[in-house]
Write a protein that binds this DNA or RNA. Structure first.
Lengths: 210, 210
DNA sequence: CCGCTAACGCAGTGATTGTTGCGATCAGGG
DNA sequence: CCCTGATCGCAACAATCACTGCGTTAGCGG
């Protein structure tokens, strides 16, 4: 039926996204505004008109791109917490984890980071939490996988509850031992974790292994 | 000057609080309303008029008793997370911790509890976090202190980084090993912790000790 | 049982939020 | 270079929120 359309559009159902210059500029400006406002005012007063004003953008624009504050915060968190920390390569698993845990601890000591994390978790629920730590889990998996490929004894599929020595821990175990304490202290207590303490967590995770 | 007042009031500066029947009833009703609303609607839509309507109370009453939503949430969290879990007494530290960690894990598996925790942390910042875990830290300290008084070898003030066997861990160590993973999984990931996994955390904390 | 006052309900008000329709502008492709 | 349409700014709108006096109710001590 009248397939004499000009372009290759099928039925106009899915509008082609246009991540070009202006859109990217607006996006970046809004993201920065969220971070700045969250850094100086309580999360309760963070509202879309306030963000728009701070970003130099009309509120309607923000309302259209991010339907709710929760989605906006999840987007900002995912963008902020992705690529901010690089996976180190010191040659040994212990060295990698110690360096990485220290970097994470330093990052979590920044009040602005804490404010953004708390707001994302509070408003966006599990999705917000995921946006904050998804990249960390990938980094952890990458380091453990590399160690396993490098000289890892075995993948630790069947070992007793005691934990065989010289076994690369799983991602879950490492997350429990490292991300757990790091993020728990950051979110629930006022005191930030010190670098030396973060290294101690790695030591406790790898105690009696390689 | 004219001390012929009827009562013993000094200068009328500090109004005597009146935690009587009606006030207590209103307080309980508002607390329950917050929990119920948080359980079925996103935290973003939690507003003081909504809470008041749900509680069958006039909004001005809520505005006067809790100046901001953050304080209200912190109050609700502190009330909800205090006294909900009793310190077990099984005779051994390992048994106490396993039982307690299991109870905490079960509590954290409740979606309503998670919603309240996330909202409190997101709105009230560090204070909200403290309101959620202050009681847990006290319970942990109580169990460790009791073990130390019971047959604790020493208070572990000066031991090497390896960790002496047969030493009662400090509150910080126990919080890192238990509360860290428990609350991290609950808040940042969608999957709740299973009881068996919680017991495993205790095993890892006490590995190579008593 | 009576008096005092803290705490609540009520009505009214200004400010802010969230939404919608329309015209202007700029990115991306022919 | 021009054309298409995705994206933005603008203005008006209804809805809701947060706040403030004032009268009334009810807890608490005498």
């Amino acid at each position: 039926m009248t397939t004499s359309q000009h372009s290759t559009r099928e039925a106009g159902a899915t509008p082609r996204p246009r991540p070009g210059g202006r859109s990217a500029r607006v996006r970046a400006s809004v993201h920065r505004a969220v971070g700045e406002l969250l850094a100086q005012a309580p999360a309760e007063s963070l509202t879309i008109p306030a963000v728009a004003t701070r970003a130099g953008v009309h509120p309607t624009t923000v309302y259209r791109r991010w339907p709710t504050l929760a989605e906006l915060l999840a987007d900002v968190a995912a963008s902020r917490f992705s690529g901010d920390i690089v996976v180190p390569d010191t040659g040994s698993l212990r060295g990698d984890l110690e360096r990485w845990a220290t970097d994470v601890a330093i990052d979590l000591a920044d009040p602005d980071v804490l404010a953004l994390m708390r707001a994302a978790v509070g408003a966006a629920g599990p999705d917000g939490g995921d946006a904050c730590v998804a990249d960390r889990h990938e980094q952890l998996t990458a380091m453990l996988e590399r160690e396993r490929a490098r000289g890892g004894p075995d993948d630790g599929s069947d070992r007793g509850p005691g934990g065989d020595p010289a076994t690369v821990p799983s991602t879950d175990e490492a997350a429990d031992a490292l991300l757990g304490p790091l993020y728990y202290r950051a979110v629930f207590t006022a005191r930030p974790g010190e670098p030396g303490w973060a290294r101690g967590l790695v030591g406790r995770l790898l105690a009696g292994r390689g």
